[in-house]
């Protein structure tokens, strides 16, 4: 059923835990239109998994089903099973799920609030009220997002004063503040310049310690640089999933090869 489980095991034979996320038989519909067809894969823990494919192939949609963000869009339906640490996410409380599986979006979307309030947001809505721990957690998250030194004197300024790359890292810090186990990133660098992109890639490496990362990217070099595993989507189907070097050097499917050699998309 889950065809890449072996690959995951093989990649991290010493990993005590099984895969962090296991998706099986996932179909997804916007109204009557089916955009994901029978997707099955397993996401290994504490690694970076990249999803690539031409635009419109369903990568974002797939990512959203992993923390049920699709439920915020009217008329959507997901069939199949997603297990987080063996637990069915559809049966979980959605807020608990999203606390454990955070998300960073393609366009940075800081709140029109101060930098501090942005990072503290997730904690506050989860009932953190006391000042001290809040301030510590905010600092800690900003440090993890490698943003602390740049903003430590601007904490109470509007988040919109930051540059694009800083805003995106602020969004990552905000997601990290609630200490997610999985972080989903949907083309986080697509609007950024190369320097900001490099910073975020560096940041992703440092997060592997504590997080499982899944990144959607249209940039194949980026996938090759950062990810241990890569999945290739086409027309709503998962064509191939394997270790990144296999995907890029010895793809098993013709479509994958065509895509990575730039023959379409």
């Amino acid at each position: 059923m889950v065809d890449n489980l072996e690959i995951v095991r093989e990649a991290r034979p010493h990993a005590a835990a099984g895969p962090k996320l296991v998706v099986s038989g996932l179909n997804f519909y916007y109204g009557d239109k089916q955009v994901l067809h029978d997707i099955s894969l397993a996401i290994p823990p504490n690694q970076i998994t990249a999803l690539i494919g031409p635009s419109g192939c369903g990568k974002s949609t797939f990512l959203r089903t992993l923390n049920r963000m699709h439920e915020t869009i009217r008329n959507t339906r997901a069939e199949g099973q997603v297990l987080l640490d063996g637990e069915d996410i559809m049966a979980m409380d959605v807020v608990q799920l999203r606390r454990r599986v955070g998300m960073v979006f393609q366009r940075s979307n800081p709140f029109p609030k101060s930098i501090f309030d942005n990072v503290a947001y997730g904690l506050r809505v989860n009932g953190w009220m006391r000042k001290r721990p809040l301030a510590e957690a905010v600092e800690h998250s900003l440090r993890r997002a490698a943003l602390w030194d740049e903003v430590k004197d601007l904490l109470h300024e509007s988040a919109y004063k930051l540059s694009g790359g800083q805003q995106q890292r602020l969004c990552i810090a905000r997601a990290l503040a609630v200490d997610p186990e999985v972080l989903l990133l949907d083309e986080p660098c697509s609007a950024l310049d190369p320097i900001a992109t490099a910073k975020i890639e560096e940041l992703m490496f440092s997060l592997k310690e504590t997080c499982t990362l899944v990144i959607v990217t249209h940039n194949m070099q980026q996938a090759a640089r950062v990810a241990e595993h890569t999945g290739f989507f086409l027309h709503g189907k998962l064509i191939e999933f394997n270790r990144t070097e296999v995907i890029f050097k010895r793809p098993r499917c013709k479509e994958t090869e065509d895509y990575i050699t730039g023959r379409f998309g």
């Binding site: 953190w128 957690a137 800690h140 200490d179």
Partner: peptide, 25 residues
């Protein structure tokens, strides 16, 4: 253990259900 101290403050999955039930209400 390597996780940072602040994380202990977080009401993790074991938070009393009533709290979340209240929020969901």
């Amino acid at each position: 253990g390597s996780r940072v101290a602040t994380i202990e403050h977080l009401p993790r999955a074991k938070t009393p259900r009533t709290f979340f039930r209240r929020l969901r209400a």
